[in-house]
Simulated assay, not measured.
Amino acid sequence: MTSPINPIGGFSPVGGVSGLGLSGIAGFTEKAETTAAAQGPNADFAGMLAKGIENLQASQTKAADLAVQVADGRLQDPAQYTMAATEASLGLQLTMAVRNKAVEAFQEIMRMQA
């Protein structure tokens, strides 16, 4: 059994907000290791991407909910909303960067001559 991958430095939780909402990318679970043994490395990568996107959507939903609470005056500490909105924004930027790199790699492969 392999050891889990450690989180990337600099993405630690800030004031109760999880680091960028991408905790699924930070390491493998036992279920992922079992799946990896059965389906190979591509299943791990696809699973990590899916988990990362789910976490991104959850962080965006949390930020939207906190925005409504700030507008209604129900949120005691508006800094919670600021942190959640920043987390969602950074997560989206990271997702877009990964997507852009994947598109660039695909285009480069398509340019190769046989």
Rank of each mutant, 00 (worst) to 15 (best):
A26H: 10
A26I: 08
A26F: 09
G27S: 15
G27C: 11
G27A: 13
G27H: 10
F28M: 15
T29R: 02
T29F: 02
T29I: 03
E30L: 10
K31S: 11
A32M: 13
A32G: 08
A32T: 12
A32P: 05
A32D: 09
A32K: 08
A32N: 08
E33D: 13
E33M: 13
T34V: 12
T34D: 14
A36W: 07
A36H: 08
A36Y: 07
A37C: 12
A37R: 15
A37G: 15
A38R: 09
A38K: 10
Q39C: 07
Q39I: 04
G40D: 02
G40T: 01
G40C: 03
G40F: 00
A43D: 01
A43P: 00
A43W: 01
D44H: 13
D44N: 14
F45H: 10
F45S: 12
F45T: 15
F45N: 11
A46H: 06
A46M: 09
G47A: 03
G47T: 05
M48F: 09
M48N: 09
L49D: 02
L49K: 07
A50P: 06
K51G: 07
G52Y: 00
G52Q: 00
G52S: 01
G52W: 00
I53F: 05
E54V: 06
E54L: 10
E54S: 11
N55G: 14
L56W: 00
Q57W: 10
Q57T: 11
Q57R: 14
S59L: 06
Q60D: 03
Q60P: 00
Q60T: 00
Q60N: 04
Q60I: 02
K62A: 11
K62M: 11
K62L: 12
K62P: 03
K62Y: 06
K62E: 07
A64S: 08
A64L: 08
A64R: 08
A64W: 03
D65K: 10
D65V: 07
L66G: 00
A67R: 07
V68R: 14
V68A: 14
Q69H: 04
Q69M: 07
V70W: 04
A71V: 03
D72V: 07
D72E: 15
G73M: 01
G73C: 02
G73R: 03
R74F: 12
R74D: 15
R74L: 15
R74M: 14
L75A: 03
Q76R: 15
Q76K: 15
D77Y: 04
P78S: 01
A79S: 13
A79K: 13
A79M: 14
Q80Y: 05
Y81M: 05
Y81N: 06
T82P: 05
